[in-house]
Design a protein around this nucleic acid. Structure first.
Length: 255
DNA sequence: TATCAGCCTCTCTCATGTCT
DNA sequence: AGACATGAGAGAGGCTGATA
């Protein structure tokens, strides 16, 4: 349960800021939370008095405090409106990470449609094979999982994708980017989302099929691999230009 | 203001699934 | 079968908020 909660709350899932391992332990150990749906009925008053596992000099317990508790409740409330892919990832279905969750969200559009799909329907999605399809089908065949989904629905968690047409021309369609190192003007997630909005694919590993590697500061082994494979490497300034103009670099990188 | 603990962001690595 | 891509866990360093 603790691992499920941590996974559900993590950044790439429901992104509940402030809910980490220590707090999850407290919530489960005190009995406040028995499944992920219970998160949505927590109050700031309940959270504020939780022991954070330390003691003051006088021997009394250090508690979470009102500031953190209020922020956490706000973050939990916001998480009701995450995109479908985040929810699918957050449910913790084996073999379904962020990327596969996006494929499934795109293909089925709602939790209900995915839950009703056959193994063959799921495996028909490009990028999803029989193992993943079997795992997804098994998840939605488990009554316990279905009950949690119903409780999440009752708590107001959105269960379907809000269809939005691309707002920018898909000028980077067919190009694959890999981000490495730290960027100054945005996080890698933001940069990745901006690239995807232009139709690009963003991958986490470099191969000869990679179109461009965007290297920020302290880039690691992905930069080394890009150089070894002769994949064009671009810097943050070039990335900004791509995002502004919507056009891939004319030169193909020069690092 | 300094310290502390927890959280966040990011890298690295490896097992495993998918595709050609 | 080999190449490619993903998922997931561990660890490092920085950031944040509560406490002293």
């Amino acid at each position: 349960l603790k691992r499920t909660l941590q996974h559900f709350a993590m950044r790439h899932a429901m992104d509940i800021e402030g809910l980490g391992e220590a707090l999850v332990n407290q919530l489960v150990d005190t009995g406040l939370v028995k499944d992920v749906a219970d998160l949505y009925s927590l109050t700031a008053e309940q959270l504020a008095v939780l022991d954070v596992g330390r003691t003051k000099l006088d021997g009394s317990a250090v508690v979470l405090g009102e500031t953190v508790a209020r922020k956490l409740v706000a973050s939990i409330n916001e998480s009701r409106h995450r995109p479908l892919a985040r929810l699918l990832f957050g449910l913790g279905i084996r073999h379904v990470g962020g990327t596969v969750a996006e494929l499934l969200a795109e293909a089925f559009g709602s939790v209900d449609a995915l839950a009703a799909a056959s193994e063959a329907d799921i495996a028909a999605v490009s990028g999803v094979g029989p193992k993943i399809a079997e795992s997804v089908r098994a998840f939605f065949s488990n009554p316990d999982n279905l009950e949690v989904i119903e409780r999440l629905r009752a708590a107001g968690v959105e269960m379907a994708e809000r269809r939005t047409e691309p707002t920018r021309p898909q000028t980077l369609a067919g190009l694959t980017f890999v981000l490495t190192g730290a960027l100054e003007r945005f996080t890698r997630d933001e940069a990745g989302a901006a690239l995807k909005a232009l139709g690009a694919k963003v991958s986490s590993s470099v191969s000869s099929k990679t179109s461009y590697v965007v290297a920020g500061s302290d880039a690691g082994s992905k930069l080394d691999k890009a150089i070894a494979l002769g994949v064009p490497v671009i810097g943050e300034q070039e990335l900004v230009e791509i995002l502004q103009t919507g056009q891939p670099p004319a030169t193909g990188g020069d690092r």
